[in-house]
Design a protein around this nucleic acid. Structure first.
Lengths: 222, 222
DNA sequence: TGTTTATTCAAGTATTCTATTGAATAGTAG
DNA sequence: CTACTATTCAATAGAATACTTGAATAAACA
């Protein structure tokens, strides 16, 4: 291959990879990917969840679709978007890891809004598996019910954080409760643990969300 | 936390992650990251390697630096850039994986320029380790000498592809030769294997480059 | 068939990004 | 101190992107 031909090859190759990079170049699109990592959703639901206008959400979704990061199916009048592939979540996870390692601002934002998260005594997957096998804990999925339905951790019970207060009676105070939600930047589990502590329960937060759990190669129930 | 406050939190968080996404949104910057995955380099060397003007390369490097994907050190009059962190390479790798899985165009580009790569009988890390332990193969690093110096596979010998033809006498034809280079889209090893085949050697191509080898957790010698 | 609903498209404006050019800076060598 | 080298900065013009608004589709339902 000639030098010029090699340049053409590389240009075309990096051009293609940059299509994916460009799709990641917007905070709105990253949020869409993050939400879609839980389960598929309609345009309207995504717009609501992310606080964007429907038209704007739709446009960003097409950018993601053009880069083949999401796929779509029609169901009646609604379009349901979902991540194209497990590798898309892994890329988002890799990007987050870089951010956590390199951007002090991310730490600062988390600290500003979430105060001291260590009070929630984060538990990792390893420890959870161990405690579950001994039947020592109640595992609580505090995400919206539809996300639980789309896939949840084995042995988890669904009590969305919005319903937790009125459904406390369902929980025995004998065992420790481990709450999980969407992932490391989701605050549903934080809120649940805070509420449970206030009501005298022993409760901790699981570090992983469902997508991180799946990425660890651990089983998810549908 | 109030609804409005939650939105502010998410906005700030995704805004930060998008800094990294934006840094990945240019083919030139992806190529810079890819080249830097081999070893640190000066601005001039990067400009030469990627076919960009020095000023343009410098500007793109500052974009990468602003996103904390690369770091820089001064050595006399030259600035040496390097990847900030192993996690940056892993992110680039994750992006490539998505591209390979989702973008048919990437396959098409590779096929157009590289014809049939299976003729080079790609070998994976597992098989190489096995063959090396039995002393059955010669392992050849065909990258430029400076990249070999910055880190190479254990037991590898350095013969840059540009020098291979005149240094063939150094290689015994008894053993099979395994050539590797920068990674899956680098053609140095392809060229080396083709040349070796033409001269009657048994030769194969290693799938991984040094950064992929390192990312597998395998040792790299300096 | 006409109406409703969810989504996409098209147009317009504001903003941001890119590559080029030439000048400025910071360290080195004479 | 002067000349030189490697890099960065500043200014520019052109290209691409973002968000809004209102209209257009396409399926579902009465």
């Amino acid at each position: 291959m000639q030098t010029r031909e090699k340049r053409t090859f590389k240009n075309q190759l990096y051009e293609q990879f940059a299509r994916i990079g460009k799709a990641l170049a917007s905070p709105h699109r990253l949020e869409l990917l993050d939400v879609l990592a839980q389960c598929e959703r309609t345009v309207e639901a995504l717009a609501l969840e992310t606080g964007m206008s429907v038209a704007n959400a739709s446009q960003h979704l097409q950018v993601l679709r053009a880069a083949h990061l999401v796929e779509v199916r029609r169901d009646g009048v609604s379009m349901h978007y979902r991540l194209a592939d497990e590798s898309v979540f892994r890329m988002w996870q890799a990007l987050r890891t870089v951010g956590e390692a390199q951007l002090a601002e991310i730490d600062r934002v988390v600290h500003t809004f979430l105060q001291d998260r260590t009070q929630l005594q984060p538990m990792d997957a390893q420890e959870l598996l161990h405690r579950l096998s001994d039947d020592q804990v109640i595992l609580l999925d505090v995400r919206p019910a539809e996300e639980y339905t789309a896939g949840h951790l084995p042995q988890a019970r669904s009590i969305p954080v919005t319903e937790l207060e009125v459904r406390l009676a369902e929980l025995s105070a004998d065992k420790e409760i481990v709450a999980y939600c969407r992932g490391p930047y989701c605050i549903f589990a934080d809120e649940a643990v805070a509420l449970l502590h206030a009501r005298g329960y022993r409760a901790r937060r699981l570090e992983q969300g469902v997508p991180e759990w799946r990425a660890l190669g651990l089983p998810v129930e549908v």
